[in-house]
Structure formats: structure tokens, C-alpha cells
Design a protein around this nucleic acid. Structure first.
Lengths: 225, 225
DNA sequence: ACCTGAACACCGTTCAAGT
DNA sequence: ACCTGAACACCGTTCAAGT
């Protein structure tokens, strides 16, 4: 690897060497700077010093590159969630709160990447990126099950709790990233996420301990007696 | 209005007459068919039988049209939420559940429009569309306050509950629309929304009745005793 | 006041030709 | 095997010119 560069910036020789990685890296930067819609294949190619047609040797089209970017995003995302969880130490509740913080932090640090990951259906519905997304959900489900068990409840409701926590985190993250939830308006995303997640978890524990894993569709407001 | 058409399809005379409305209507269809990213100013112009430059007599640019589309979307959205709420009849809980159903139904019936509304920050951050969005949130907050009051609690926590419900509904709606939450995978969006929203509401009532409107940041899992 | 027509820069994509 | 160069259709945007 004497004639090729480090993957960032134009290269010298005729062949690039690591064009695929370099393009994805450039795409990540573009998406961070200008959002998923602002990303352009041509500009990514130009940034790594290559012609507009060159990417088609490595990706079938623009959507394919986006999908690969999303896949890597999900992989990184899952790792950060798992690291924050840290096997549930020192206890499931504390670890779970850390994971919630990591979720929101990722979305806010990389809003473009996060939007690309969860943006369009078609963009990321390749099998690979789907599997990576599943891993993130699995991390949440794993944590939910640990919390229920630690509180002496059956973890039968872990799946539902995980979906609730995921949807809630996603909603808070998206609203925060899109500016609908601003601290100035007395709506600090971190606080909203913490309190709502706590409510979902606590209620889930209560129901599990009450022995009604799937309460029938009755009018709510008070627990089914 | 003898020489102009009904706003859909090509017109006959030199002047269109209702170009602005016709363009927005065409945009709505395009966004429904192909998503917010698939919408093209040129095609909208072509569909209503006008040159590509004509829209610039009514909109400053593509983003301006999108913003106006989002504004109308929010207006419609707010109306549907308010209609579903129906002044809280017959009781706040039942009305609230109806509103949740209306929320999800809107997002699923008009996924493109919903994505456009909540998609990009810059796209809809005009004052007008912001105000329309606020109206939707106000409807939710109003319902939250009614629920708390009906249960003999102070409505001081209505604002927080509204944000929680909104974020949760948004998360479920987005995951459902983007295909991450599919019924086949044992994750029916309607059920997830119902159960989670119920948990948030019930927990909020419990806390309000316990007299702790804003619990301090203590490790959760059990209510602050 | 409202729209056309032509123009410009830019983008996605293809493909024969170069290394 | 990998990239260039030229080409095509398309898009956003501008603007002088038409009605």
C-alpha cells in the first residue's frame, strides 16, 4: 500500500485502493453536515477524488450506499447500547438508565446518521441492515428482561416492554433531533426520556407482579381489579 | 371562472387560476405515492400542466412548498385529533384512547405527509407550520389535563404527560410507518400504542395522586417513598 | 400579475474506453 | 479489476420575454 492514501481525500494513483470504505466515510460526513437528503453521490465521489461514475463499481446505486451506511450506523449504535448496559452492572435499573442516555446521546451526536438509519423504509430494508437493527432491539429486550427478573417478576412481558421503551426512545430522539422538543420550551429531552421510561418500566413491573401479563382491552385509568 | 379547470390536471388558458392550491394538491399526491424525498417540483408542475418555472411565482423554492404542505398537514392532523377527542365524551379515558387511535390512523393513512410534517427540521421550521404543530400538541395537553382532573389529581403534570404521550405516539407511528414495527413480528402498532399509553397515563395519575408532581432524579424502579 | 422558453449548474446512471 | 470521459435524462432555479 505504497501508492494509495489513507482513505480520506483525493488519492494519487489511478486506482484508489479503498474506494468503498472511503465513499462510506465521505457519505457519513455529508449526512452529518447536511442531513440524509443533502447527501449526494457525486459529491462523495468528488471528495475522495474520484469520478462520479466510479462508485458504481462498488454500489449498485445511491440507495445501496445509504443502506450500507445505515447498516454500519446500526452496528455502532448497538455497540454503544450494549456498552452502556455493561451486563447490567451494578444493577439493572442503573444500567438501563445509562442505556437510555446512550440512546439519546447517539441520536443527538449523529442526527444525520440516526435519521438515515430510521428514515425511509426502502432505504434500509436490505436483509443486512435489518439484522443490524434487530441487534439494537435485542439489547433493549435483554435489558428489559433483566429488570423484570431482578424485581422478582416473570420476564414474559419483556418483549412488550422492549417495544414500548424502543418506541418511546425513538420518539423522544426524533422530536429532539428535529427540534420539536427544545429545552427552552420547558421540554428537556433528557428529562422527558428519563421520566417516561421510568413510568413505562415501573408500570410493567407492577403488571408483571400483579400476574396479569396481558391485560384485556378494558377501559384503563385504574388497574384491572 | 369559466376558462380555468378545477385545480387538478392541465388547464386550458394561459393563466392557471389556482396554481398555488393545485401545486400543493399535486405535491400531496406525490408525497403519498413516493415519500417526501420522491417529491419533485418539476413533476408537480407538469402534473398540473404548467412549466417548471411557474411555481416560483407562488413559492420561493421547493422547501417553501414543502413547508406549506406540512402546515396544512398539521392543520388537518390537529382537526382529526380534536374531533377524536370530542370534548372528552363520554369520559376522558375513552376519548383519549380514541385520540390515540386517530393519531396512529393519520400516520398510517398518510405516511408521506406525516413524514414530511415531522421529517426535517429546516423543512418545517417556518413560523406558520410551527404554530400548526403547536396546535396538535395543545390538543394532547388538553386531553392530558382533563384525564388528571377527572381522576381527582392536580393537572400540574399535564404538560409532562402530554410530551410523554406525544413522543410515544410519534415513536410508534414512525416505527410503524417505516416498517420496523410489523404485526407479523408480534408487534402490532395499535396494541403497542394502547398499552404503552395506558401505562404512561396510569403512572402519571398515580404520581399526581401521591402528591409528587416532579420526583427528584433518584434511581427508579419503585416509587419514591 | 402570471406564465413560457431558454438557459445554467448539478445530479444519478450508463457505458465504451483507458490503466 | 478498477477507474475515466462522455453522454443522457432529470431536477432546481433564474430571467428575459410573452399574454
Amino acid at each position: 500500500m505504497s501508492k494509495q492514501d489513507n482513505g480520506c481525500g483525493p488519492r494519487r494513483g489511478y486506482h484508489h485502493g479503498r474506494l468503498k470504505d472511503a465513499l462510506i466515510e465521505a457519505a457519513r460526513h455529508l449526512v452529518t453536515e447536511r442531513g440524509p437528503a443533502g447527501f449526494t453521490l457525486s459529491e462523495a465521489a468528488k471528495r475522495v477524488g474520484v469520478t462520479a461514475g466510479a462508485p458504481y463499481r462498488h454500489f449498485t446505486d445511491r440507495a445501496d450506499l445509504m443502506s450500507e451506511l445505515a447498516r454500519r450506523g446500526f452496528e455502532q449504535f448497538s455497540q454503544r447500547l450494549e456498552r452502556a448496559w455493561d451486563e447490567g452492572k451494578p444493577d439493572a435499573i442503573a444500567a438501563f438508565r445509562r442505556m437510555g442516555g446512550a440512546y439519546l446521546a447517539f441520536a443527538r451526536e449523529e442526527p444525520g446518521l440516526y435519521s438515515a438509519m430510521f428514515g425511509n423504509v426502502a432505504t434500509l430494508s436490505t436483509p443486512d441492515s435489518g439484522a443490524a437493527a434487530d441487534r439494537a432491539l435485542a439489547a433493549i429486550r435483554n435489558a428489559a428482561a433483566a429488570i423484570l427478573r431482578q424485581h422478582g417478576a416473570s420476564d414474559a412481558g419483556a418483549r412488550d416492554l422492549a417495544f414500548q421503551i424502543w418506541a418511546y426512545s425513538h420518539g423522544v430522539a426524533m422530536l429532539a433531533v428535529s427540534g420539536h422538543l427544545n429545552p427552552a420550551h420547558d421540554a428537556d429531552p433528557t428529562r422527558i426520556l428519563e421520566e417516561g421510561a421510568r413510568n413505562l418500566v415501573e408500570m410493567s413491573i407492577r403488571r408483571a407482579l400483579a400476574g396479569a401479563p396481558a391485560p384485556p382491552p378494558s377501559p384503563w385509568g385504574r388497574p384491572a381489579t
